[in-house]
Design a protein around this nucleic acid. Structure first.
Lengths: 226, 226
DNA sequence: GTCTATAGTTCGATAGAC
DNA sequence: GTCTATCGAACTATAGAC
């Protein structure tokens, strides 16, 4: 059949120029899961997006569930490694300011959302989805990938703000993440609410600086006696 | 068949003491949609939760999609009416403070999450889910139910904080809602991060006051020249 | 490794008895 | 209005050719 033959040729061409099918599936899954959630995504849609076959997903990952958890955990290590590296650089110069700590926490994830070339934006939306989930799997995945880094930053926040106790530092961290998650999910709400005025275009640094300023003032208000 | 007869008797008993089947379905749908999202929820699970039949959902609402939109819009009117009433009460006493405006915005929804008796908490989780969604339906539902009230509160925030321009007021509102949404979704993250120390129990007023203090300081920092 | 074909299940929705 | 029964479609996952 000419149709199948053409598909084979096309596929052979891709094999040389493109990355592994396994990685293509992970990238495609990142996008489809981010757009539709776990239940709304189908293995067929992921396979189509990857230019692969649905059966390959089970060959490589065993199940849709295992694929989802692999996708979620894949970038977490890199994000948290960058956060730790930024903290280490700051610590080498003495006690970092609260603003510096918050920038180290938020920048690696917010930068993903602004990544124009690759799928980091999809992961950002996926994290936003899972972090807000109340089901058992969402809690487990969030805890496994982000509990350790959370505790580290809670300590750093407490160290950067005299008079902030542990309970307040936990809330400071959670408020920071809440705003960070909202920044990552491109709901188009800011543009909608500024209409009919055009929303001013904003660089990553400008948006991040505004959020850091907002959060830092909020955290210091938690520590102030009144 | 005795089994069917018994079910009919049971049902007849319920008819007197319980509310309409239609309302029971809405309450059940609120819970099941909140726990599993739109795609993860099934009409059968909703019907079981409501003690009704799956066919009734289509009889009353036409489709799963229409049921979802009905559930989402049901409480929005009441929430926003309460917000407007609180604003009116404040306005009758002169220009309200930023803290008073933020309390009027957050309290009606956060109070839902603390409702111990019935399904307000489920709606809170549902709103959190939809507000973070990036798909077309989530954007439309959010806009239809919450755009008008958002613009009203953006004006109030700007009026309460001298020097805050419109763009900054929009971001102030969005940051407020981001923290409000995080407050509504009981992810158990605060308890997890405070472990092994026991999380101090907190009343609605205490938690709300802390969030308002945090947000108000953040918003004022947006208006400050440096 | 990658494909086609399909098994087995579950879904949303409908028809029709009562 | 509310039920039972069921349809057709879509899903995850697997079997087996290549």
């Amino acid at each position: 059949m000419a149709e199948a033959a053409q598909r084979r040729v096309q596929h052979a061409e891709q094999r040389g120029t493109r990355r592994d099918a396994q990685e293509a599936i992970l990238d495609a899954a990142e996008q489809v899961f981010a757009e539709n959630g776990f239940h709304g995504a189908t293995t067929r849609a992921i396979a189509d997006q990857a230019g692969a076959n649905a059966a390959l997903i089970h060959y490589y990952f065993g199940s849709k569930e295992a694929l989802f958890e692999t996708v979620f955990a894949r970038r977490a290590g890199a994000i948290n490694a960058e956060r730790r590296a930024r903290l280490a650089t700051l610590r080498a110069q003495g006690q970092p300011s609260l603003e510096q700590v918050l920038d180290a926490l938020l920048r690696p994830t917010v930068a993903l959302g602004h990544d124009p070339t690759r799928g980091g934006a999809h992961y950002a939306r996926l994290v936003a989805h899972v972090a807000q989930g109340t089901d058992a799997r969402s809690r487990r995945l969030t805890g496994d990938s982000y509990d350790a880094i959370a505790r580290r930053f809670i300590e750093e926040i407490a160290a950067a703000v005299p008079g902030l106790d542990r309970v307040q530092a936990v809330h400071a961290y959670l408020n920071t993440i809440a705003i960070g998650i909202a920044l990552m999910a491109p709901t188009g709400r800011a543009q909608a609410l500024m209409a009919p005025c055009p929303a001013p275009s904003e660089t990553l640094d400008e948006g991040l600086a505004r959020s850091v300023r907002f959060i830092a003032a909020g955290i210091r208000a938690l520590a102030a006696p009144d």
